[in-house]
């Protein structure tokens, strides 16, 4: 493991993560309750508590290029468990966004899947599974991912050939608002308990 030069800490990174996630990162006292409850930690390159520690240390590169932030399933077990009431899930999501913006994505396929999913939701107001899988396969070149499941799902009438639309573009309006106004900046809680 390489030596971390503490002089290279990036305070802007800490404040950006805090600002965008609305979470006070300094509250983390490294108890590990998040790691203890995380169902995906077996696949992570860094356990959740180390992601939090590296943010505290202002290590932009290490955090934004790790795979853990992309393998996070956003199940919120960590957020429920945290004794300091840090919504760790929000922090992970913030890191995913910042990782994409900085071009440091380590798990491109996951990022593509996320994009395909959101694209499908934006177009149809809900997920259209065949369409989103087609988009995912086309962009990643993984043409055989989960294809074996298609006949089973078709037999159970779980896959449609035409998208079912939800609403009249209200969901697309949410996307449009997000693109125009950006993420809602969260106010950090004022008490430093």
């Amino acid at each position: 493991m390489k030596t971390l030069n503490l002089g290279e800490s990036d305070p802007r990174f800490i404040s950006e993560v805090e600002q965008r996630s609305g979470q006070k990162i300094s509250r983390c006292y490294q108890c590990g309750a998040c790691t203890g409850r995380c169902p995906n930690t077996f696949a992570y390159d860094l356990p959740v508590n180390r992601v939090m520690r590296l943010i505290q240390l202002g290590r932009r590169e290490e955090v934004l290029s790790c795979s853990a932030i992309w393998l996070c399933a956003a199940c919120q077990a960590c957020a429920v468990q945290c004794p300091n009431e840090i919504d760790v899930t929000r922090v992970m999501e913030t890191c995913r966004q910042m990782s994409a913006e900085a071009g440091l994505v380590s798990e491109r396929a996951i990022q593509v899947f996320v994009k395909s999913f959101l694209g499908s939701v934006k177009r149809n107001g809900r997920a259209f599974e065949p369409g989103l899988m087609a988009g995912y396969m086309f962009r990643t070149g993984r043409f055989f991912t989960d294809v074996d499941l298609a006949p089973v799902m078709l037999a159970k009438r779980k896959l449609a050939f035409k998208p079912h639309k939800a609403g009249n573009g209200e969901v697309a309006d949410i996307f449009r608002r997000y693109e125009e106004e950006g993420p809602v900046s969260c106010n950090l809680e004022s008490d430093h308990a």
Partner: peptide, 9 residues
């Protein structure tokens, strides 16, 4: 739980 020194669940 976690062993934060080992970095593992």
């Amino acid at each position: 739980g976690a062993d934060t020194l080992a970095g593992a669940q």
